[in-house]
Nucleic acid binder design. Structure first.
Lengths: 240, 240
DNA sequence: TTCATGGTTCGACCGTATCCAAACTATTTG
DNA sequence: CAAATAGTTTGGATACGGTCGAACCATGAA
């Protein structure tokens, strides 16, 4: 049975804790050096090096040399999406863990999924776009409406340019923390870019966490609000 | 780092060849007994039992007792889709294998992905629906058009009933063998049901292969054809 | 009740993947 | 050129996971 062999190969690649940590650390779409990844995984440099070798020639990571540093990154978003998918099933079937700590709370609130916004904020944004009629959803697949096209253009997204690229413009991605969909694809990436450009959010360097600036949170909520509804992203509540 | 831990847990579950074979064997959406799975994985009953225990309390499989048999199946389609996704990246980054044998050719032509049609036939069907204007795609997300609703109703699909269910009606699923999308979701499942009910196809028991009946192939091609185009599913060609 | 079949548990064996220390290579800086 | 930083390679100790035979439970048939 070849199917099983294929499965088990990448399965075992992801199956080691050290390697899994490295992969998780790269899910923000960035690239890290071998030393940083070693630190992230909690192993020494030599072992990290061995793991990285396996990951690269296993096809899950891509290596770019730069001076005396070697930067490792995930090969494509297909790999990133695979990891999110795996984390998705892990999240639904493994809530036997203790309650999430503060760091996880921040992750749950807003984080980057490879190159677009995920977490509570990502889900809220997606759902607000649907409520406001910018995206139409049949089943659970989004489609940009006329009003949506206007809105995104006003926000600074060049839809025409996005459509030219090979990457799908509009996709959804199941959120492992909330079990609801958020916006992915080229549009999702462009929105995150826009949020950063407008300084509404800042990406936490070396983690997947996305933090709202005070004014950014207000502006974001205003963008999502429709006909005087309550804000969707409140302050950093630390609920049990 | 918890994220890495979650990843590695299911990763290692999938990472063992025996377990991966079992999971792959269940991807047709059916249920098999422990003995059958042991045979499929090429291990003895005791080892199979141990693996199955890990898989079930790891949450990837579901056990239903029935008489003196114990039937194992995947827990949901989320798990099935995760496996397809993994096979997807395996397929794109691992074509250094030898050329596919005859059995794999059949798999590539038409197979069932949990409960809907995949492979060449699945992709052809999906793309034909788009060309004929039954599904509209923006980016790569499908949406049922008015014409589509009529067509599917005529085919025997009860769209209203599908919309009532919690499961998304219309989704796409990336095909590992062809690297193109095919139709998943409730509609995808209903279509496969319809194809079987009309006796256009038969599911190969105990494998994921779907075989067309002679008349079925003709009818299927007729369904897909639009304004006198060439048929999309030809005979069983055995290419090198 | 007894027998047979389908599965699980136990114990022991074996292989392999992981790990680190130390040595080695390469690239930049002084 | 020498010193320092970044990374890989090697070798050997360790441990964990997979594997099977045999014994053990459970369910259905005789």
């Amino acid at each position: 049975m070849k199917a099983g062999t294929d499965l088990s190969q990448i399965g075992s690649l992801v199956g080691d804790p050290a390697r899994a940590n490295m992969l998780a650390a790269l899910m923000n779409g960035g690239a890290l050096t071998a030393s940083e990844l070693a630190l992230e995984a909690g192993v020494t440099l030599p072992t990290a090096s061995a793991h990285l070798a396996k990951l690269t020639d296993g096809g899950l990571m891509r290596l770019t040399r730069q001076g005396r540093n070697r930067y490792y990154a995930l090969t494509d978003h297909q790999v990133a999406e695979m990891l999110e998918t795996i984390m998705g099933v892990a999240a639904v079937l493994g809530p036997k863990k203790v309650l999430p700590g503060p760091r996880d709370t921040a992750m749950r609130e807003a984080r980057v999924c490879y190159d677009h916004l995920a977490g509570e904020a990502g889900v809220s944004m997606f759902e607000a776009f649907v409520v406001r009629g910018f995206l139409r959803v049949d089943g659970d697949v989004p489609d940009i409406t006329l009003a949506g096209a206007e809105f995104f253009a006003a926000f600074g997204v060049d839809l025409a340019a996005l459509r030219k690229k090979r990457r799908p413009v509009c996709r959804t991605c199941l959120d492992w923390s909330v079990r609801r969909a958020h916006l992915a694809g080229g549009l999702g990436a462009a929105m995150l870019e826009g949020l950063i450009a407008k300084a509404w959010v800042r990406r936490d360097k070396a983690s997947r966490i996305v933090r709202f600036t005070p004014q950014g949170r207000m502006a974001f909520n205003a963008m999502l609000r429709h006909k005087g509804e309550a804000p969707v992203v409140s302050g950093t509540e630390q609920g049990p």
